[in-house]
Write a protein that binds this DNA or RNA. Structure first.
Lengths: 232, 232
DNA sequence: CATTTGTACTTTGTATACATTGAATTGTAC
DNA sequence: GTACAATTCAATGTATACAAAGTACAAATG
C-alpha cells in the first residue's frame, strides 16, 4: 500500500484553510504533487478529511502565489515550471537579494553581527560534514538572516515567496561537491562585505552567488527536458 | 440616498469570485473602502448581490496580496498603510524598476523604440496640457512599457502589484505643478538612456525618479498624520 | 468506417445551513 | 452607580446541497 504523505497536521490551531494551504503548498514544493497534476476538490477533500470549502480557499491563495493555475470550469492544476519561468524568478531574486544585502550593510547593529557570524559558522561546519541537507538549511538560514537585516518586511515576504518557487531545485547547487569550497568562500565574502559596510562588494558577490546557482539549476533542467524528449 | 459605487459588473464572463475580487480591490485602491474598515461577509454579500462563498474566496486573494489583513474569528479588514509600509514598498519598487530598465536597455528592439517614443510624447503632451489625470495615465503607460520591455513576466507581475499598493498616492507627485518640468526631463532621460543602451544612467535616473515620488508621498502622509493627531 | 449526436457522469460554481466563538448588552447584586 | 455575570446576538468557520457546464463514451446514422 502506498503511504499517503499528504496529511493535515491537526496540532496547529489554525483555520482549516490555512492548514490545507500549507499542506498543499508543501506537497507542490516537495514534488509530491507534480506539475500539470489536477487538483480536484472532492478528491482532496476526502484525502485530507475536510470539506470542499477550505480546499477552495487554499487553492485561491495558491493561485495568487503562482503555484497553481486555474483552467476555467476545469479547476486547478499544479503550475508547470518552465525554463523561462525560472530564469525570470532568478533575475528578480538577484535584484532583491542584492537590495537586501545592501540594506543589511547600512542597517546592521553590533548584536546582529554576532548572530550572523554564528550563521556563517553553521554553513562552514555543515560544508565540512558534507551533509547536503544540513548545508541547505544553513544556507537558507544565512540568507534569511541577511534579508531580515534589511528591516524591510515587504522584501522579506517577496524573497521568501520567490524562494518557494524554486524549492525543488534548492539542492542542485549544493549537490556538486566540487563547488563546496566555492560556496564557503562566497558566504565568507558576503559576511565580510557586510562587516565592512561595503555595499558594492556585497551586491556583486550576491549576484555571482545567484548566477552560480542559476547555472547549476539550468543544467539540471536541460537534462530533465532532454530526458523527457528522449523518452517520447 | 447615498449612491453605492461598489457594484459588481455583470458584463464580464468571469467567475463571481474574480468579479468580487476586482470590485473589492478597486474599492480599496480608490479609498471607497477605508483602511481599518471591516469587511463583513454577509454585509458585502448582500451589497453585491451574491452569496458569501465568492466573497470569501475574493478575500483570500486580497489577503495574499496584502490589501486586507485577517483578524482571527473577527474576519477581514482593509489593511492599514503605514509610513514604514510605504517606504518598504518604494524601496523594493526602486530595485525592481531599476532592474526593469536595465533589462529594457539590453532587450529593446527597433520596433519597440518607436512605440516607447510615442509613449514619451504622450507624457510630454499631457504635461503641457496640465491635466493631472492625463499625466498620471501617460506616466503609468510609459513605466509599464519599460517593464514590459524587460521581457520578464514575473517582474511585470510584481511591479504591477507594488504599484497597486500605492494607487491612492499616485497623484501626489504629479499634483505639484512646479515639478512638471522635472518630471518631463526625468522621462526624457530614461528614454534616452534606453536608446543609448546606457544601463547605469538608466538605473540611476529611475532611482532618482522614484525618490522624488517618495518625497512627495511622504510629505502627504506626514501631513495626513499631523491632521489626524491634531483632530484627536 | 467515420462522424455526429445524445446521454450519463464528473467537476466546478454558487448558495445555504449548521456550529462555534467572541463581543456586546442587559440585568442583578452590592 | 458600578461591577460582574449571564444571555443574546452577530459574525466567522465549516459542511453540504443544488445548479450549470463540460467531458467522455456509446449508439445511431451517413
Amino acid at each position: 500500500m502506498k503511504e499517503d504523505r499528504l496529511q493535515v497536521n491537526m496540532d496547529e490551531f489554525l483555520p482549516l484553510r490555512d492548514v490545507v494551504f500549507k499542506t498543499l503548498r508543501k506537497g507542490i514544493l516537495t514534488g509530491e504533487l507534480k506539475p500539470g497534476e489536477r487538483l480536484m476538490e472532492i478528491h482532496l477533500a476526502n484525502r485530507l478529511g475536510v470539506s470542499r470549502t477550505p480546499i477552495r480557499e487554499a487553492i485561491r491563495k495558491l493561485e495568487l502565489e503562482g503555484l497553481v493555475t486555474m483552467v476555467p470550469r476545469r479547476g486547478a492544476e499544479v503550475a508547470n515550471i518552465t525554463e523561462k519561468n525560472l530564469k525570470d524568478v532568478l533575475e528578480v531574486r538577484q535584484a532583491l537579494e542584492s537590495l537586501a544585502i545592501e540594506l543589511a550593510c547600512e542597517r546592521i547593529t553590533e548584536e546582529n553581527k554576532e548572530d550572523l557570524r554564528q550563521k556563517l559558522d553553521q554553513v562552514e561546519t555543515a560544508v565540512r560534514t558534507g551533509d547536503t541537507g544540513a548545508i541547505a538549511s544553513a544556507d537558507v538560514a544565512f540568507h534569511d538572516a541577511i534579508v531580515e537585516l534589511s528591516g524591510n518586511m515587504r522584501l522579506m515576504q517577496l524573497v521568501s515567496n520567490l524562494g518557494e518557487q524554486m524549492y525543488r531545485y534548492r539542492f542542485e547547487y549544493i549537490k556538486d561537491v566540487t563547488k563546496h569550497s566555492q560556496i564557503m568562500s562566497e558566504h565568507r565574502i558576503m559576511f565580510d562585505s557586510i562587516m565592512e559596510n561595503d555595499k558594492e562588494k556585497a551586491a556583486t558577490i550576491v549576484k555571482v552567488h545567484i548566477n552560480n546557482q542559476e547555472e547549476a539549476i539550468m543544467r539540471k533542467i536541460q537534462k530533465e527536458q532532454g530526458a523527457a524528449a528522449g523518452g517520447r
